[in-house]
Design a protein around this nucleic acid. Structure first.
Lengths: 182, 182
DNA sequence: CCATCCTGTCAACAATTGTTGATAAAGACC
DNA sequence: GGTCTTTATCAACAATTGTTGACAGGATGG
């Protein structure tokens, strides 16, 4: 790994941490550069600009092969909460969606990445009547529940133990995938 | 209504339109003042500052008496989609949540307003075992589904007809309220 | 040693941000 | 009509934004 690659990586890590947590519009390039220990000008040099740097943090963000190839998708989602490392990563992703999905400048990047990396591969794998609607509701429950728990923080989900939460989430995910649509 | 009240109202309307759509961090006070046909300085004079202006747009935003006093809450939520005026207002509120819930400066205001105006009154009205968790999941489904449909725009929910969507949403809301948690 | 390329530093830029204070215009009241 | 209060205008402020170009240090290869 060359020196430039290292700098690129440091910038990318710092950018992910900042953008994902506080949202694209609330982060300045000088924040990122400072916490990466490099000069601001290198952002434009190595990535081309702020938007491109944000876009780079989305590479593989929604890549989730275990879920796509799973025989029982709800089980895979719920199992995430038993592995601390996976759980933390998942919460970070949920926070990223919450912080950037509605941004006029980068919201479309988030939507495109989610659709290309996750939704479409998963839809291609699954089959069945009205599967698009059922899968969309599956995603809706997953995002809605985790966001209510981790971002909004409504008492009831945030106060529940991980086991209780996993059980309730599992119930809802099953209902979503099995939901009749017509 | 005095002239000042009119100006205040014009500012508030313009602020709601801008903040709710594009998010607090992406809106400048000059944008709002211009589209209200008013000078920028009047924002600080009449509201005290940008944050206070945003906070003012949240007054009564989550007030939803029909739902709180309803015998069948899911039915009330779903019925919203048959009344165009109500539906538009609801979509605007969902977009507002998506655009501001994770903002470091005003996210806590959104969370507090939702909890005080909607969640707590509703929880006080309802009763039953583990009702906080069930109500939180109810909110999670409502927000998750509408956000997936109106903000993320995943094919499956956005392509569904209003009738299909209402039926599927109804099914999920019932499941959420009835879900066993332990 | 010299030349060339990679990498980083620094200063400056135009634009935009929220906020403030002085000043002018307009309306109400006697 | 003169006076006082309300309302609006304007200019300026310090700070921050993303981006660029000129320059320097250091490594690499001849």
């Amino acid at each position: 790994m060359s020196k430039a690659d290292d700098t690129r990586a440091r910038l990318l890590d710092a950018a992910r941490a900042a953008f994902w947590q506080r949202g694209y519009a609330n982060v300045g390039l000088r924040d990122i550069a400072a916490s990466a220990g490099v000069d601001v000008a290198l952002v434009s040099r190595y990535f081309g600009g702020k938007q491109a740097l944000f876009a780079a943090t989305l590479d593989g963000a929604f890549h989730w092969p275990e879920l796509i190839s799973a025989a029982d998708p709800p089980a895979v989602v719920v199992a995430k909460y038993t592995d601390p490392a996976q759980a933390t990563a998942h919460v970070l992703l949920i926070r990223m969606i919450a912080a950037n999905i509605a941004d006029p400048e980068v919201g479309h990047l988030v939507r495109a990445a989610q659709q290309a990396q996750f939704y479409e591969p998963m839809l291609a794998k699954l089959g069945g009547p009205k599967m698009a609607a059922r899968l969309a509701m599956f995603v809706a429950v997953m995002i809605g529940a985790d966001m209510t728990r981790e971002v909004i923080g409504l008492p009831g989900l945030s106060d529940a133990s991980n086991a209780d939460y996993a059980r309730q989430l599992r119930h809802m995910l099953d209902a979503a995938l099995a939901a009749p649509v017509s």
